[in-house]
Design a protein around this nucleic acid. Sequence first.
DNA 1: CAAGTATTCAATAAAATAATTGAATACTAG
DNA 2: CTAGTATTCAATTATTTTATTGAATACTTG
Lengths: 222, 222
Amino acid sequence: MEKRIFKDKAYSLLAAMIKAMANPHRLEIVDLLGQGERTVEEIAEEANMSIANTSQHLQVLKQANLVEVRREGNYIHYRLTHEEVSKSWQMLRELGFSQLSEMERLIRDFREKRNSLEALPMDELLTRMRSRNLVVLDVRPAKEFNNGHIRGAINIPLEGLAAKINHLPKNKEYVAYCRGPFCVFADEAVALLTKRGFKAKRLMEGFPDWKMKGLPVETIES
Amino acid sequence: MEKRIFKDKAYSLLAAMIKAMANPHRLEIVDLLGQGERTVEEIAEEANMSIANTSQHLQVLKQANLVEVRREGNYIHYRLTHEEVSKSWQMLRELGFSQLSEMERLIRDFREKRNSLEALPMDELLTRMRSRNLVVLDVRPAKEFNNGHIRGAINIPLEGLAAKINHLPKNKEYVAYCRGPFCVFADEAVALLTKRGFKAKRLMEGFPDWKMKGLPVETIES
DNA sequence: CAAGTATTCAATAAAATAATTGAATACTAG
DNA sequence: CTAGTATTCAATTATTTTATTGAATACTTG
């Protein structure tokens, strides 16, 4: 094979794969599937898209070998093909954070109103976790918590937080986390906590990042 | 700002950046700029594109903050904005290698004909480099070699190899490397060397990968 | 300032991408 | 087998992306 043809084919194959990620909806889907598998319906609901549109975007991701499916009765469950997909997403996300000043501005605007601007990076949480005074709060739905969470974290899904907030000790410090930097559960939790006089911050990243970094996690078997 | 609007904006910003990479020509440009800055003319020549088309693709990359420019007289030099761009490219490339079976087939077909299929991974080269019997051959143009190369490597640009091959000792083993897995210099070098009875392999990756991994490099000041 | 070179710009046409709609499939439950 | 549900498919339209072409800019050199 001629040199030029080889190069054209190689770069085209990769570009096709990257193109599959180069869409806001599909990025959101990849991000979501980083938490574990989901049905088409669940994805559509989470990402605020029509079912048909969601399905079509999922086909694109499947074509590119980024996701795979499992049928269970009427439902079709989608999941990432490999952890590296999640890893690559995280890498691209970080690249965006470092390159795009608009991204920084967007996040600052959003978090300022929720008192969650001052976020804790993962390594800092790790060192401060030894303290008895720190409570790590997983504010994702129970299903995701059971599927894997930061070791030692307690699960209070955001929707249940308002009800349980009065039982929480005021003399502790709280660090809330959820799916990742674009997941707003942790921000809403911090907003609520600080409003009620608790000392709370959010984790900068999310659970998939923690896990991918090889930091201590635990799982609850169902 | 409302939750959904925030998410839409965040994923859109990232998708726009990724879209800038999601094109075969632009990937080739990013890959090439991983070696160091280049003028528009040089890029067009290397990637086999028209000047105007190259310029337009470069505008897209610039818009996404992936490359930046420096003017010097009539020439405009483009370079990657940060090392993380190169790092991300490498990550995506690896993702492609692991996900796309077609990619494996393409590379196998190309390298089989050049006796360069059996490639050496970086860590293996590192351990074997201590041996006095191994020669590490940088077959890129001298300019790129001077800009940085694997410590201890000798530079014989591919176009000069045929002329110098008779002065090379036959009792050594050779490992050739160049810009990366899609750069064909190393493959051509291995083809030539094995044809003349030398024992030669190519490095699986390229110099930017070696450098990014923090392995020993050296530079020649000009 | 005139001529020459490197690069960008603007306009065009062809091709690919994306959202919407309604119909078609592939299952389960009764 | 029928009705119901989750998902996919196909057709349509609007939008975006891409390559090509020739003209316009921004420099350098003499």
